[in-house]
């Protein structure tokens, strides 16, 4: 594996392999010496055209745990609007010595372009592109689900419900692809305006009522952040209206099985799509997800940078 730009690049076996490696690497967090020498001498550049402290820090810690050098490059997306300048930026970074470029970009497909145009020979890892994909988020969610149910292979038989702003969510898209690949049943639910047309083609059931979705007794409820920054135009009448129908709170929380997992990719809008009660519930996996994020990104960096003899 040289790049990871989309979940579609993974087979069931390679996905499970990554999760297995991540599972082992998560143990490093419990050691006194939290560092492994595997990527000593390698340089990882975090090229972020969009603000994201959490994902950037997670990738940074992951690379440092593997002894790679890390350079953080935040570009202003307005100055890099076309392929040509993305090419120049990437080539400049490679000339400095980058072995891997972790890229977050507001345009869907930017990481794939970088990986496939032949501009650079470095590995490209997608850290979120537009409303397209966020592969490492899906992997860390799958790892968290696997751990939550004590599974060691895939997720066959589990029912996962993804709730909220599916339209703008790259997290949802990558998750649907990976969860289906691993044999889970995926249902999405949200207000009609936030469900993209044709999502059924990805193999998911679509429901327009949270209650109805909860009656199907999902094993996992994945709440999505309402991405106000991506909402050009009106997608729902008011925040209060949205919360009334789509927030995980009160009665809805009570409908959830005692063994179900509550997940959220963060950062949470407490009181909007998720209540504080749900966020702090013993079933909540939010912090586990963050911890697993480092392990999964270590596994991805290791896989991408150890495969090729440069």
């Amino acid at each position: 594996m040289k790049h990871l730009t989309s979940m579609r690049e993974l087979s069931r076996e390679s996905a499970i392999g990554l999760l297995d490696n991540a599972q082992q690497l998560s143990q490093v967090n419990e050691r006194e010496v939290k560092k492994l020498p595997a990527l000593r001498g390698k340089t990882v550049v975090n090229l972020f055209f969009e603000n994201s402290t959490r994902t950037r820090i997670s990738f940074e810690v992951a690379a440092k745990r593997l002894s790679a050098d890390v350079i953080n490059f935040s570009a202003d997306s307005s100055s890099v609007s076309k392929g040509e300048s993305l090419k120049d930026t990437a080539q400049t970074l490679e000339a400095i010595g980058a072995d891997a470029i972790v890229i977050r970009h507001p345009l869907s497909g930017a990481p794939k372009l970088l990986a496939e145009q032949g501009w650079i020979s470095a590995s490209v890892i997608n850290a979120g592109d537009g409303a397209h994909e966020h592969p490492t988020q899906a992997l860390l969610d799958a790892l968290t689900i696997r751990q939550g149910f004590g599974l060691h292979e895939d997720l066959t038989g589990l029912k996962v419900l993804i709730v909220g702003d599916i339209r703008h969510s790259r997290v949802a898209r990558s998750n649907i692809l990976l969860l289906k690949l691993l044999g889970a049943k995926v249902t999405v639910a949200g207000p009609e305006s936030l469900i993209p047309e044709g999502i059924e083609a990805m193999g998911t059931e679509v429901l327009n009522s949270f209650e109805q979705a909860l009656e199907e007794k999902p094993d996992v409820v994945m709440m999505l952040r309402v991405q106000k920054e991506r909402m050009q135009g009106e997608f729902f009448s008011s925040a209060a209206d949205y919360s009334k129908s789509w927030s995980l709170e009160g009665d809805r929380l009570a409908m959830l099985s005692p063994k179900a997992l509550i997940m959220h990719p963060g950062p949470m809008n407490r009181g909007f799509e998720i209540s504080s009660q749900a966020a702090d519930d013993p079933r909540s996996q939010v912090l586990k997800q963050v911890a697993n994020g480092v392990a999964v990104r270590m596994a991805v960096l290791y896989q991408c940078l150890s495969g090729e003899q440069l």
């Binding site: 594996m1 392999g17 297995d20 490696n21 082992q24 690497l25 143990q27 492994l36 020498p37 595997a38 990527l39 593997l66 596994a299 290791y302 896989q303 940078l305 150890s306 495969g307 090729e308 003899q309 440069l310």
Partner: peptide, 20 residues
């Protein structure tokens, strides 16, 4: 004791990491 991450030939092959 898994030594995968300590090999000096990491770049030559993708290896499965075992439990330590």
């Amino acid at each position: 004791l898994d030594i995968t991450m300590y090999r000096d030939d990491v770049a030559s092959a993708e290896r499965k990491i075992h439990q330590t």
